[in-house]
Amino acid sequence: MTALTHLQKLEAESIHIMREVVAETENPVMLYSVGKDSAVMLHLARKAFAPAPPPFPLLHVDTRWKFRAMYTFRDNMAREMGMDLLVHINPEGVEKDINPFTHGSAIHTDVMKTEGLKQALNQYGFDAAFGGARRDEEKSRAKERVFSFRTAQHRWDPKNQRPELWKLYNTRKHKGESIRVFPLSNWTELDIWQYIYLQDIPIVPLYYAAERPVVERDGALIMVDDDRMPLKPGEVPMMRKVRFRTLGCYPLTGAIESQADTLPAIIQEMLLTRTSERQGRVIDHDSAASMEKKKQEGYF
């Protein structure tokens, strides 16, 4: 008898979770962020429900500030999968023109992503939403359950959460409550990359290193994705070979300098450098004043 590899087991577990949700909830949806974890989750959904397309739509909560390459990729993906793509943009955010530059990342994310998601869930009446979060992303996620119960106001109440034993998931809920389900809970970053590599899953080209126009902002390399990016007077972006470890709103997502333009190279780089995924900072860039000082001190 053969043994299953760890990826085969993880895959089977995720498929099992997805099928449980479809069997026991009324109106599920898959949150699609266009990133690599979403790509894996979508691929798993395809496998879980084949030969038919997955019986739920994709929901992209758009902040309007994603990389252009993400929008193109998203639309192609939905078409190919034969799934409905719902794109929700917080209308109040549009009215007030909420953006990362004027309002800062905290407000922008809060209004466009967090509030936007709640609006979309309410609007369509979804009672279960698949998300691509993993337990190894942050230390605080180690204790997260696969099924996370939310009140009608989308709040998380510790009294509502259930222990998860064996392969049993208690999906019962009251009217108005909803569940967030994380089928990738036991996958690590390396598992995700290995799976993408082995299964040849298409991902947004921004994950691969290429020469791209970037400017420096507070020690991070930000890509000049379109002409909305405010440049300082006289600023000329440089073309640098960079790639992205996570994809989000382009003004808030730092690139890293890299030569890794193939999947094995990306994996190699990831294994060798191994800093946490959410940190996208480049080496600190001192202000010109302190450098002048250093010059005068004869340090240089």
Binding site: T5, H6, K9, L10, L198, P264, Q268, L271
Partner: peptide
């Protein structure tokens, strides 16, 4: 392990394809 990763990433990936899960 680091050496193999640095030197032959494809070989490393191949070796890790067949890991089990405990």
């Amino acid at each position: 392990a680091s050496d193999m990763i640095a030197g032959d990433i494809e070989g490393y990936l191949k070796a890790h394809e067949h890991k089990g899960l405990l």
